[in-house]
Design a protein around this nucleic acid. Structure first.
Length: 104
DNA sequence: ACGGTGACACCAG
DNA sequence: TCTGGTGCCACCG
């Protein structure tokens, strides 16, 4: 049985470029619909140059929710998203309806 | 074993 | 739309 952490990282790596998903979606995808907070805890261990596209994960409202004190910053995530043609407004908000990734 | 903690989600006002 | 409170659960000391 793979650990929750590994499952999360594996799923995040499968997110296609140019798309974003919510923490809840990731949690649900790995079998724990209520463990969205843990997803954040896992991503918090990564950094901007990681092989894992952690920046494609935002909260359910489509907003970047890094508080600070973490390896990465909101500005950093915003820049990475813009680089993939994903629009991020002044409030660090993304149009989930347009950039959200719906699994099948 | 147990309680504190938290890149969240969801609901009420 | 925004704020605050509550539920949740994997991880760590």
């Amino acid at each position: 049985m793979r650990s929750f952490k590994e499952a999360v990282l594996d799923f995040v790596k499968s997110i296609p470029k140019g798309k974003v998903v919510s923490y809840g979606q990731v949690a649900a995808a790995v079998g724990s619909p209520r463990a969205a907070r843990q997803v954040g805890a896992v991503l918090g261990q990564l950094y901007s140059l990681s092989s894992v596209p952690w920046w494609r994960v935002v909260n359910s409202q489509g907003v970047i929710s890094i508080k600070g004190n973490w390896a990465a910053t909101k500005e950093q995530q915003k820049a990475l998203l813009l680089k993939e043609n994903i629009k991020v407004n002044e409030s660090f908000k993304i149009e989930m309806q347009k950039f959200g990734w719906k699994m099948k």
